[in-house]
Structure formats: structure tokens, C-alpha cells
Design a protein around this nucleic acid. Structure first.
Lengths: 250, 250
DNA sequence: CGCCCATTTGACAGCTTTCAAATCGCGTGG
DNA sequence: CCACGCGATTTGAAAGCTGTCAAATGGGCG
């Protein structure tokens, strides 16, 4: 797309530079990594629990999510990913996938051989640190989700999730600060929060009637960020996006 | 303790060698890392949410746990750690702690400057990879915990947690396969599972009466591993301990 | 021996789920 | 352009799992 840099891997570079200072040669090396482009249709799997993936997958456009299926058949979504994210660094480096990765929307992705990832990570410390940091931020978000589903009531969980999405999408330049398109069904929101779709619906309605959010189709407008963040017990520190950790959204 | 190698950092080496092949010079370099020994009393904090730790903490003896406090005042424990674990690699590398680390029992620990950790990780790829892998396994366990508190009922959650402890303690050489000392109160178990202490008590009683476990003080004996694993929807793959992922405990 | 904390037990309340059905939204085909 | 069909959303009523509250019991330690 860009004249100055036509590599499709640019979204990955953009994200990693949030976390580490790269030299020009780091940038060139990162963008020159071997990769295969592919388009994944909505709902299709990228990795399945138990697979032994040989490639890591970088998202270029669209959304994906990671989930686990428990014995009773219920699904728990453990994370949502967007352009720039390396969605199965975990699975490919660990060897055997411990969860599924599925396309939430149509998504363009690039597959990079896991050996190439390991090589560049140790050949170029700035890149290696950015990748490591990225997996650490993922871990921080997992911890917050454990607390969210473990110790917050339904209303708080939903508000928290909406706040998280707002900040992460905004950080990726994919939305305005208080308005975004959320390509998820209420059933998927339920699987993020450990609730039922019916109850998600009720909580969204409450937040809407209370004047904290407005909904139009699947688009969400946060009408009152400060109060939504209060309701959702939301503090942005765990996202490690930098900036004032305690500040409300401007 | 050991004549051949008196470094107190040996438990960390032991754990990391589960995941990467080290050369002799790797081992020497790891054990020679600069560190300060300290004993932490039961209940004392090692890191608090919001701190900016400059050192990473390696556990030598005892247990610690990581937890978050939500707005309503409830506590969610997100992980339990034992000898060999680097309990705040996450906090120290991310810069600002997003959770608390507290001693579950009296614990001996070694503090290593975070810059020394970063240096050795990139100077010695085998060590760097082992550390990265370690944080990835942590992430895998977080994902399982999200699913555990999000999509399993109380009985299943408790059984799952007991199975996880059994395997992790056994992998660390801290217990027999079907019998271990669990230094946690029922209130702490409740904070791991997102339940109340009262309900944890009820579930433990049920598992005991059903003949799946036996309790003596805080020691747990797993009387019927296969059925406890069934009840707990437990599959060991997410622990990435190697071996047959689907095998029942021998 | 007595205190204190953890465990255990019982009764009841309540948040969330379950089950069903109606409504809405939107792409497709007549 | 409108009817149809199907999935998603919405709503209501009732059940149930887990939480809350309270009190009794038990165990360890000074």
C-alpha cells in the first residue's frame, strides 16, 4: 500500500514499535521476514487445539479470537486480536496448541515460519524484546480476564469489556476513542465474559438505558466514559499501552 | 547444598532445563547471575500492584501467589508459584506491576536485577528461549484459568485445580503423584476459583465423600485420579510439561 | 486453659441460567 | 419492489447454583 514501504507486514512493525526502539536495519529485517499471505474467511479456524503449528500468524486486517472448549461443551473466549497481533506465537513456540484460533471476521494474515521468528528474535535483541514484551502484555490481559470472570458481577464484566475494546481499538488506530464497530455477536460477548447470551443482552440494555453507552447495530458509542469505567472497575494499566495509567480517556 | 554446585539459583536452572538444552557455559552463566538472597515471611508482599520493580524474583523455597483486587474488594488469585519459578519476570520486564505478588508460605527468594535478566536472555539464546518459554507456559495456564472460572461449575473447578496442583508439584519434585501438602486455606482456594470459601468447603466435602480425594489437614490424597480428572475436565496439555498429553497419571 | 483463626454446617436470598417465544434485521429470490 | 427465511436480538417467567449470613465446631499455639 505505502510507497515508502510496500511490505504487508507493516501492521506488525507498527505495533512492535510501541514497545521497543528499532534501528532502520531492524525495521528492514522485520519487514523482510519470509511469509505467506492468506485470507481467512469468517468463522474459519487458523489453529485448532492440539495442532502442532509450524508457522506463526500475523494479522494484517480483520479480527480473530482465541478460545477453549470445556468438557460440558461450553466455549470460553480468552482473547480478541486485531491487525498487527501475532496470534499464535504462543501455540507455535510452545509446540502444541492448547487452544483454538478462529477468524471473527474475514481476515488477511501472514504466516511466518516459527524458526524465522526464533532466529530474528535472538539475532536482533530489540525485536526479540518486543516479541517477548508482546507475549507478556498478552499475559497481563489474561490475568485481568481471570479477575473479570472470577470476581466481577455481570454488569461490571460487560462494562469492563467494552472499555477494554475501546482502548485497544483506539491504540491500533482502528476507531475513535468513544465510538467503535464491534464485530461480535452477543453470544460471542457471552463467551468472553462467562455469561449467557441472554444475560449479556440484559446487561447491554441496562448500560444503554442508564445512558452510559449507545448502540446502533453492533457499533458502540461510549456516552459517558468516566462512569462506564467506574461501573466496569476499569483501570487501563494492565493493557500496558503507556501514558497516564490512571487517566480517564480524554 | 550441593557439593558440585553451591549456587542457590539451582532450582531455577532445574526448571529451565525442562524446556531448553543448555551448554555447560550456559549453566555456569545462569548460576553466576548477580542476586540478593532474602527470606519473605508468610503473607508478606513481594510486589504490589502499581510498583515499578527493578529486580526479578526467583523462588528458592516455599510458595507465593499472584493476585488482583477488584473494585468491590474481592481478591482473585491468578497463579501459584513454587521453587524455581521467576515470579515477577512479568512485572519487572513490563515496568509497572499490574498485580500483587505475595508469599503464601515463608519463602526464600533471590532478587536479580532486571537488566541482568535481559542481558543474559539475549547473550545466550538457550537461556533467553527458556525464559520466554516460561512466560508462555504461564500464559497458557492463565488461559486455562479463564476457562475454568468462566465456564466450569464449582465442583468441576475445584477438581480441576486439585489436578493441576498435583501435576505441577510432582513436576517440581515436591510431592508424590497422588499425595501432596497444599499450604492454602479454603479462602485462598476460593480466590483461585472465583467461589466463596463456604462453597469451596462444600465442594471439597463432596469430592471427599464421593471417594475421589481424601483430606488430612491441608494434605490432599487423590484416591481416584482418573475419575477426579474426569470430574475436573482436566487435560494436562496446557501445562506443557511434556510427555503424553492425554495420558492419565500413572 | 483459653484465644483466635480456619473449617464446617444450615437456612435463606439472589444473581444468573434455563427454557420458550416473539421480534428484528438483512440477504435472497420471486 | 416485496415476500421469505434464517440467524441474532429481545423479552418474560421460572428454576437453580452459588452467595450471604450466622453460628457451631475444631485445631494450633501461647
Amino acid at each position: 500500500m505505502s510507497n515508502s514501504n510496500p511490505s504487508p507486514l507493516t501492521p506488525m512493525l507498527r505495533k512492535m514499535e510501541l514497545w521497543a526502539a528499532f534501528s532502520d536495519s531492524d525495521r528492514e529485517a522485520l519487514l523482510a521476514m519470509p511469509h505467506t499471505l492468506k485470507t481467512i474467511k469468517e468463522g474459519h479456524y487458523i489453529v485448532r487445539d492440539g495442532d502442532k503449528p509450524t508457522h506463526s500468524c500475523v494479522m494484517l486486517t480483520g479480527f480473530t479470537y482465541r478460545h477453549k472448549i470445556v468438557g460440558a461443551g461450553a466455549r470460553q473466549i480468552v482473547s480478541i486480536h486485531r491487525a498487527g497481533d501475532m496470534v499464535d506465537l504462543q501455540n507455535s513456540l510452545l509446540g502444541t496448541a492448547d487452544h483454538n484460533v478462529q477468524a471473527l471476521t474475514r481476515a488477511e494474515v501472514a504466516f511466518i515460519p516459527r524458526e524465522a521468528v526464533k532466529e530474528i528474535a535472538f539475532a536482533r535483541p530489540a525485536i526479540g524484546f518486543a516479541m517477548w514484551y508482546d507475549t507478556l502484555v498478552d499475559g497481563s490481559i489474561f490475568r485481568e480476564w481471570v479477575a473479570n470472570v472470577g470476581r466481577r458481577d455481570a454488569r461490571t464484566r460487560m462494562a469492563h469489556l467494552l472499555c477494554e475494546f475501546a482502548l485497544r481499538l483506539e491504540a491500533a488506530g482502528l476507531s475513535e476513542q468513544t465510538h467503535y464497530e464491534l464485530p461480535m455477536t452477543q453470544e460471542q460477548l457471552a463467551d468472553c465474559t462467562g455469561l449467557t447470551p441472554v444475560h449479556v443482552n440484559r446487561m447491554l440494555k441496562e448500560l444503554d438505558k442508564g445512558g452510559f453507552i449507545q448502540r446502533d447495530k453492533r457499533a458502540v458509542t461510549i456516552a459517558d466514559w468516566r462512569r462506564l469505567a467506574e461501573i466496569g472497575d476499569f483501570q487501563r494499566g494492565y493493557l500496558h499501552l503507556g501514558g497516564d495509567q490512571s487517566a480517564a480517556l480524554q
